[in-house]
Design a protein around this nucleic acid. Sequence first.
DNA 1: TGATCGATGCTCT
DNA 2: GAGCATCGATCAA
Length: 203
Amino acid sequence: MLSQSFFNQETEALAYALLGTVLVHDSPNGVTAGKIVEVEMYRGVLDRAAHSFRGIPTSRTHVMFGPPGYAYIYFIYGMHYCLNVVAAADGVGEAILLRALEPLAGIELMARRRRQTHPYPPRISEMKRLTNGPAKLAQAMGITREQYGWPLFNPPLSLYQGQSPVPRLSVAQGPRINVQYAKEAAAYEWRFWLKDNTFVSRR
DNA sequence: TGATCGATGCTCT
DNA sequence: GAGCATCGATCAA
């Protein structure tokens, strides 16, 4: 399991470091796990696209401003949850959005949570649909507001080292998804993904 | 496979 | 009251 000190690194370095690590949720319904293959960083007052851009903690965003390594979860479009890893020092509102996982364990449970009814084992195309988007992976992993503020270096929701760190050359970089409203920040290349991994949300 | 569009309720103005 | 760090259904190809 990753230790609390793992999260204590500069935000871009942490974004890279999270690629290849494994998110595990040991829930009452069973264990699910997936390798992180795509992330986006959101950088507080430097970043018009960040929920923390205004620099003032709110009831929604306050964990983002706390110490790193905790779960920042937000509810969006009236029906979806998304999971971030809080980054940067206590008092600084930065976070890393998890955008896609490669399913590793608990695939039947993921499919049930996602209301997919294909036979087991699923085809690759069916597997992708489980976790190739931020709200899809949250649903597949059984993540809701209940895990808001959870320390990700403790079970039952935690990160493991897995095969990380991944080689720098295997990581691609580009603009973040759906932040066109964020003016200059829309062009920042703050999305990172594993180039050759089929479970990313977009290439 | 890709483009378009509606759903849905919370957050902040 | 406006807008949103999204997704699934639908339609065309």
